[in-house]
Design a protein around this nucleic acid. Structure first.
Lengths: 350, 350
DNA sequence: TTATTGTATTAACACGTGTTAGTAACGCGT
DNA sequence: ACGCGTTACTAACACGTGTTAATACAATAA
């Protein structure tokens, strides 16, 4: 079970005919300040190579006070982690940064946002050098603890007036942009289905962007045309059913989440209505599969991978004791116009 | 940056007025064989609680020769990790097992299947106690190395005649089941789009299941009706375009991957054809979002979460030195009948 | 009083690595 | 012969934990 015997730096030393100290010097590139002959350096490197020596991670972590591991913490809601459409991209982006910096990524999932115990242990046990939080919600208690210990931490998705470094998009501006696209297509009666309950910051911001767009074009905000989604397609399905019952019904709906929009579109088609002919739909997030929805979903592109790499880089800087200048990093979004809003039809597929 | 000073077991000892040895005994529940009074036990536990003591992971790993970390290795193909539809469920399942066993999960992504260096380091550095491989392809070289060191390893998705523990479904049987469903609906000219190139085991197996079903119902296998997908919707789009050009065209297609099926359906709708009226489509995998495709995709349900928990449990056993009885674990699949094949229409949404 | 048992102690080693201080051998120039 | 720089050594400590052996002190039993 236990593989072979562990190969230690001592083994390398004896094979190369030098001391363990010399091996350590060579392998950590400290042989510039100290004096070690090129011949010895080669001897050591060859011996290490031949033995397939890899330094023991635990021993290194212990003495260096650094685990070389980034913690990626995903806060799930209601055991829905399986349908998390962002995880893959977040992992992709963070992994790139980690690899560049010779770090590993340790993944944890928060079943209960109130349960700090899990990552509190992670930190106190020195198992990770820094933490990247990703997820829609963070409890205040968790923040308090992290702020106290001033542990390198970066948030994906900003929290209003929090002391943390964060990386996010401008949700207000992006939602305004999406809504304006509908207005420019001639729609005057425009509904809104949010991505989540209003207590989520991103949800509130997107709703505000929608309202601002209406006001700027002198369209009164109608409370009847607002429904709250809850992350999953089911909630979008129900929300759209609700919107279909108001009279007169909207001619277009801004759905602040692609996944919720999937459900909304389902409801429309079950009701015998066509998208975009009977109703225009614009989404938000640009989930990878949205391009292959029927109809292809027009949406706001969220640069998740770039957010993750940006967050990762900030985290690395924090771990290295630097203090990146801006505490908040805001990345750009842009519209992706496909079919679900009608108007100028885009090109077909490859 | 470095948070507060690290709290050691010595701190707990002095606070409780006992020795470090006693603290270690109490905290590791070794105080049953040895004799420690209940009063002292309480003193130690309280002191640890008050100080918020958490043992240093590196130190424990070093002395216990056990990192308490599971390695989850995803082999990506062509930088497509972002559209990996299984990752979330695998993470979900494995995380459950990890939590139950007080273990962490370290994630790594293999850019290049030929690059063993990454997880070879992981193993030799003793950074993980076992490895769970998930992904469509594994190179032979990687296998050889792992077999040599006999490191606790479990594969999700079997490899023919490999010496490893693995967890998988019966792809042949499942594909046969899907194809038979089309046959039972009266189709006689049934195409097939595979999930991947034929050198992938799962791809070959699913194709074989399709062929067996045909033969069992005396339908000749027609080479023209076979196309190879390549994991993504784009490949399904092109494959379906190809199938539409054969004459007479098939009335139904078995697409051995939901994601590829998304593209195939797109191609049909772009060609002005309706699913299932003009062509029936059955998929494979039952990706979470397939339920909200238009039309809702009938497919073969793959119990990914269960596969992951099963694999995790086998891995835990291996790490603990046990040798689970069957080397291969096969889980059941079942058909999920929705709309894309026509026939008896299923119920609508909640 | 003397032996026994229960309780907790100190001292020590091990795990594998990084790092520092003190030292010894060597070749070279004076 | 002496000093000096180069090169590499040994010895030692530190990191924080688990574990074992030897020991000390009390209370109890013979």
């Amino acid at each position: 079970m236990d593989a072979k015997k562990q190969i230690t730096s001592q083994d390398v030393a004896t094979r190369a005919g030098v001391s363990r100290t010399t091996v350590s010097m060579v392998l950590n590139n400290k042989h510039e300040s100290n004096q070690i002959s090129p011949r010895t350096v080669q001897k050591v490197l060859r011996a290490a190579e031949e033995l397939g020596y890899v330094p023991n991670a635990a021993a290194q972590a212990l003495v260096n006070k650094r685990a070389s591991v980034l913690g990626l913490i995903l806060s799930r809601r209601n055991h829905q982690i399986s349908s998390d459409v962002f995880m893959t991209q977040v992992v992709d982006g963070l992994m790139q940064v980690a690899h560049q910096n010779q770090m590993r990524v340790l993944l944890d999932v928060l079943d209960d946002p109130k349960d700090h115990n899990s990552y509190q242990r992670l930190i106190h046990a020195r198992q990770v050098d820094g933490i990247l939080f990703s997820g829609p919600s963070l409890e205040d208690d968790a923040l308090k603890f992290l702020a106290e210990v001033s542990f390198p931490t970066v948030l994906m998705g900003a929290l209003p007036s929090s002391p943390f470094y964060s990386v996010d998009v401008d949700n207000v501006q992006a939602a305004k942009m999406a809504t304006e696209h509908l207005i420019q297509l001639g729609h005057q009666r425009i509904g809104c289905i949010t991505n989540a309950k209003p207590n989520f910051t991103a949800s509130a911001d997107r709703l505000r962007g929608y309202q601002i767009a209406l006001k700027m074009h002198d369209i009164p905000f109608d409370d009847c045309l607002l429904r709250y989604g809850d992350f999953d397609p089911q909630s979008g399905y129900r929300a759209m059913q609700g919107l279909l019952s108001v009279n007169p019904r909207p001619t277009a709906v801004f759905v602040a989440s692609d996944v919720v929009a999937y459900g909304a579109v389902s409801a429309l088609q079950d009701a015998g209505l066509s998208v975009p002919n009977d109703m225009a739909i614009i989404g938000f997030d640009d989930v990878p599969l949205s391009e292959f929805m029927q109809p292809r979903l027009s949406t706001v592109h969220l640069p998740i991978i770039e957010l993750a790499t940006a967050a990762g880089n900030v985290l690395i800087q924090l771990i290295n004791g630097q203090q990146p200048t801006p505490k908040q990093t805001i990345l750009e979004t842009h519209l992706v116009i496909r079919e679900s809003c009608g108007g100028d039809q885009p090109k077909k597929h490859p």
